[in-house]
Design a protein around this nucleic acid. Structure first.
Lengths: 173, 173
DNA sequence: CTTCAAACAACGGATTTCGACACTTGAGGG
DNA sequence: CCCTCAAGTGTCGAAATCCGTTGTTTGAAG
């Protein structure tokens, strides 16, 4: 009744489970999409309930979910507003680069204060979101670490005042 | 050793479980922080395992987690890179506003294509992340919907080329 | 036709979830 | 000082879930 799904010789890549799921787009089928959608609504929804919703057995759902996690296509995590959890300063930093953009992006990816890195088109080459404990920490990261990277031409910072919305529900529309 | 936390007779508030957890910062204690950290590593980790890690009973962890979810402090969800899941165009939009910034932010919050809204300091008043299916859709949202809002003075868009990092692990450092 | 690997369903035991009840502690109020 | 109330925590048992295993089917390759 439902078929295809990609080959995907499983798990031998042992690299980071949550960074840069780039390279290959595993070509998700409708069933996997439906599973992801279920888990976007509730990351703890039981496998059996998901199976009923998408027309698969509990075991099959479990296999699919495990594979999606292993492949790095999806993470199931708790998400918070850092400002409510003790991190007092947060900012988006727009960065202009001369030379290899991707190597700069990789360097940012390695910084623990940087939660989000995107290569973009427009007046910034890279957008990076930074989470810090206080002003000193933020200043340090931006001025001492990011601006110090060779190839960074300029940066512009946007300090967060208030987080108004944060969703992961593209599936529900 | 650990205390406060509310009763949480469960679920009767049916409002949005995931938008604007602003207003009150519920003042989290160290134990709740530790619980959140556990769930940032694995959103499906069993309560008993979390309890062992943070020094609490399973039931106590269950109550705390439920309360954190009810309060909107935390969500447990599946997170993906939209680009790998069929959404071909994604962008960050910087917005300048004249008049009431918050009402514009609220309007953006109501749009399903807008996944992320932040009020910021700097050369933009608001940053909004948009997820669309294709170029036409993106163009429509930016030009017809966002720019049409009364009070929006100007916008600048940064189309995403590649998502390099996306984590929620501030707890682990 | 045979072989092989992947996906799935079925099953059973271990684990987890979840509601209910009881105990402890601390803050007020009479 | 005692009482009461509220919040947090621990224990327990039944129901549900998770998870490894096994066997079947399907599709592609040899």
């Amino acid at each position: 009744m439902h078929s295809e799904v990609v080959a995907s010789r499983s798990a031998d890549q042992r690299d980071s489970p949550r960074e840069s799921r780039n390279g290959n787009s595993p070509q998700l089928d409708a069933v996997s999409l439906a599973i992801i959608q279920q888990l976007q609504e509730d990351g703890r929804r039981p496998y059996a309930a998901i199976g009923k919703a998408v027309g698969l057995s509990e075991a099959a759902v479990r296999q699919r979910v495990q594979k999606l996690l292993d492949q790095g296509v999806m993470q199931i995590v708790a998400v918070t507003d850092p400002l409510t959890v003790g991190f007092r300063r947060q900012a988006m930093v727009g960065i202009n680069v001369e030379g290899d953009v991707e190597s700069i992006a990789d360097a940012l990816t390695g910084m623990s204060e940087v939660e989000y890195v995107v290569m973009a088109a427009g007046s910034f080459d890279i957008l990076a979101e930074i989470v810090c404990e206080d002003d000193d920490h933020l200043l340090d990261v931006i001025n001492k670490r990011i601006r110090a990277l060779p190839g960074v031409r300029s940066t512009e910072s946007f300090v967060y005042l208030k987080l108004k919305k944060q969703t992961y529900m593209w599936g529900t529309r």
